[in-house]
């Protein structure tokens, strides 16, 4: 046992002599005691004073900043090719950032964390952007002939698909909101007759905006964008064909079923024709040659469709006076 202890002691002493700086504190406590001569440990009441040798930080030789040696006409995009945190030794500009104390300039660029935090655009200098554009040019294709203006584009491609892509600073590329697909088409660009137009408006209800003439279909029930786009396309196709279809029962529509007043199918028209052809029996062919008949037709339709108010009643009064030739010459 004693042999073992002695060996240990020897080893530590050897190390201590080798690295005095690092383990200076251990050297003070591990005082060499001759164990072989005395069986007991010696209590040192008066400890020897040892000078406090702190571990000295070694000064690393640092070359002067690279920015001092940079040529004035150097190629900056090759010095700073991509996005990077600000480094004062690379950027040859005397920048300062920060809120300064009184009578002092703002903190300079060396050791300035504020400059490191903010995103910089040092990689997006005008020559760098120009080079990017030049590099991308070979992937570009000619703009198609015949699509020079917005109106032409809208005429040839009436369907608009609106989707959103989300870009986050996180490892995931999934975003549930990106599944939503909006399909927009102008009602006037669809080839529909009066019946089909009426039917499609009944089917889409509030998805049609009369101000802009757009039918907007939004699909978000499927989990992916592709599925939603296909579903929206299916909806539009189904709407179009459904609006063209004429069911058997649609011919049974009587005057009482009409949802708006149609002058051409009403009693008012026959009455006017009878009155005009009096005393002969009325003919249905030449009703358009009756003077002021168009004005009368619009006035009567307005009176029924928009309701009675001062404007429509006055319009109706003028129309009746005109069509019956009751207007006194002023």
């Amino acid at each position: 046992m004693s042999l073992f202890i002695r060996l240990c002691e020897k080893n530590t002493r050897i190390i201590l002599t080798k690295i005095p700086n690092v383990t200076a504190s251990f050297a003070t406590t591990a005082k060499p005691v001759d164990i072989e001569s005395t069986e007991f440990r010696v209590l040192n009441l008066k400890s020897k004073k040892v000078e406090n040798t702190r571990k000295k930080t070694r000064r690393v030789e640092v070359p002067p900043p690279r920015a001092n040696q940079m040529a004035v006409d150097q190629d900056w995009p090759s010095v700073w090719p991509g996005p990077k945190t600000f480094h004062p030794a690379v950027v040859p500009i005397p920048i300062r950032q920060g809120y300064s104390l009184r009578d002092q300039p703002p903190p300079d660029k060396y050791g300035n964390t504020e400059l490191m935090k903010i995103p910089n655009f040092l990689h997006l200098s005008p020559p760098a952007v120009q080079r990017h554009c030049e590099a991308l040019k070979k992937f570009c294709t000619e703009w198609p002939v015949g699509l020079e203006t917005e109106d032409k584009c809208r005429k040839h491609f009436p369907l608009e698909v609106i989707t959103s892509d989300y870009c986050y600073s996180s490892p995931t590329i999934r975003e549930p909101l990106s599944r939503i697909v909006t399909l927009r088409v102008k009602l006037s660009s669809l080839s529909l007759n009066a019946h089909a137009k009426d039917k499609i408006l009944r089917l889409v209800k509030d998805k049609y905006s009369p101000e802009t003439d757009f039918i907007t279909i939004t699909a978000d029930r499927c989990p992916t964008k592709k599925q939603n786009l296909e579903y929206a396309e299916y909806l539009l196709t189904a709407l179009f064909h459904e609006s063209w279809r004429v069911e058997d029962w649609e011919s049974e529509k009587a005057e009482a079923d009409m949802e708006y007043y149609d002058w051409d199918k009403n009693k008012s028209r026959t009455n006017l024709l009878t009155l005009h052809a009096w005393p002969n029996s009325p003919t249905d062919t030449d009703w358009e040659c009756i003077p002021h008949v168009e004005e009368y037709k619009i006035a009567v339709s307005d009176l029924f469709n928009t309701g009675e108010d001062l404007h429509t009643v006055n319009k109706y009064k003028e129309a009746v006076k005109n069509v019956l030739n009751l207007k006194c010459e002023a």
């Binding site: 930080t57 690393v60 996005p83 945190t85 050791g111 964390t113 490191m116 995103p119 986050y168 600073s169």
Partner: peptide, 23 residues
């Protein structure tokens, strides 16, 4: 200094000021 963590897309940039007390 405090450790600055900046995320761009899926890249994480860690910035900060370090003493030169190390080789």
């Amino acid at each position: 200094s405090d450790i600055i963590i900046k995320r761009q897309h899926n890249i994480i940039r860690i910035a900060g000021l370090v003493q030169r007390s190390l080789a």
